[in-house]
Amino acid sequence: MHEDTPFTAARRLRALLAATILVFCGGAAFAQSGDVPKAPAPGTSGFTATERGPSLPFVGTQPVTLSAQLTAESPELSRGLIWRIFKPEAGDDGKLPLVMAEQGGTRTFDLAPGSYLVHAAFGRAGATKRISVGDEPRTENFVLDAGGLKLNATLAGGSRLAPAKVRFDILEADEGSDGERAMIAPQVRPNSVVRLNAGVYHVVSYYGQVNAVIRSDIRIDPGKLTVATMEHKAAQLSMKLVRAAGGEAIADTAWSVLTESGDVVRESVGPFAAMVLAEGDYTVIANNRDRIYQRSFTVKSGQDEDIELITSRDLADIGADGTEKAPVE
């Protein structure tokens, strides 16, 4: 068996700490916007952190005051922090035992002499230190080197999109050995402020639930709020099968939407097929009572459209060029 070098031992410890913090967060990433996750106390699934008033230290303990800043030049953070203090040796379950946890700003903990790992989390930004407690009070400051990211999306031309139809994923910029990027913050809402360590992140913007997807690498600077707006080229489409132009939609219709190359991008069943599609050429196929109707159409950014497929034999299929075709039997 090979002995760990100081480097590999430190790396192993960091990995163990990261895994332990994920367990205490319920396997989820830290909260975004102004929300602060509540860390659980040892042996429980959760805890409600409270502001601690002045109290006498326990016998044999020393006060350790912890504070954090976004940058070395910025003021101390007064709220939004999660402090977690761990023993540095893994327990029988393979996790680092949690000694104390609180939320807020600067905090003072009464700790027995010994070695500890202290993790400061501010949203999804964080920093870890190993500290040693002796026979005197001590103070530790954390410089998080963190900033914020606020995301929005528009259509080409600047039209703002409905927030309910837009979501963002924030991932690491670099791909792993498997070719995938690690997820940092999934399903982020527009206008939410996500706290992140400084660096470059890969952001994916989704408009609707089909193929209106765009990507961008965005840099976060320490101590600053980065506001980024991503531009989609897409439109909202609503499709229905009718017996005559302007008629009622026919129920129990199976829908398939295909790209110009024939790839299926969406399938559904119902009187209507409503979706957001990226710019491009498509074909919609409606299947009702073993009869098939189809129509080709072009999506242009920002031009929402209602598309009708008409069951009359001479109007069943209207192509993008206006040519009328019979339904496919």
Rank of each mutant, 00 (worst) to 15 (best):
D174G: 04
T65D: 03
G134V: 05
T71E: 07
A273T: 00
P75Q: 04
T71K: 11
P190D: 11
R195V: 01
V210S: 06
T50W: 02
V166H: 05
A121D: 13
R138L: 15
A127K: 13
L98K: 03
L70I: 00
G158K: 11
E73V: 02
V213A: 04
L77D: 04
N197M: 11
A185F: 11
Y116Q: 10
T20D: 01
A316V: 05
D221Y: 09
D169S: 09
G147Y: 08
T139H: 14
T20V: 01
Q69V: 06
P63N: 06
R195N: 12
R266G: 00
R79A: 10
P186G: 10
G26T: 08
S132M: 09
Q69H: 14
I82H: 02
M239Q: 03
A15L: 04
V143P: 03
A28N: 05
Q32S: 12
N141W: 01
M230L: 15
T283D: 01
T298K: 02
R313A: 13
A228W: 00
T128S: 13
I307L: 15
D252E: 15
I82F: 00
A162G: 05
A101C: 12
L241A: 08
I131Y: 06
I85D: 01
Q303D: 14
L66D: 00
H119L: 09
P190A: 14
Q62M: 13
A121L: 15
V257K: 02
V242C: 02
V166I: 11
V299T: 02
N191Q: 15
S177C: 00
D35L: 14
A29E: 05
V194A: 03
L309C: 09
Q69E: 04
Q32N: 12
L161I: 13
G208A: 08
E175W: 08
R138G: 15
G246L: 07
A245T: 02
R130S: 14
P113S: 04
I285P: 01
A162I: 11
H119Y: 07
A29V: 07
N191A: 15
D92C: 07
V99R: 07
P42E: 06
V23P: 00
G114E: 00
R219G: 03
A273C: 13
R289C: 00
L241R: 08
W83F: 06
V166Q: 06
G199T: 12
A121M: 15
R12H: 10
V143D: 05
E324H: 12
A234M: 08
V36Y: 05
R160V: 15
L241G: 09
S45A: 10
L56P: 00
R215C: 03
G158Q: 09
G158T: 10
G302I: 06
T139G: 06
Q209L: 10
A112H: 12
P6K: 03
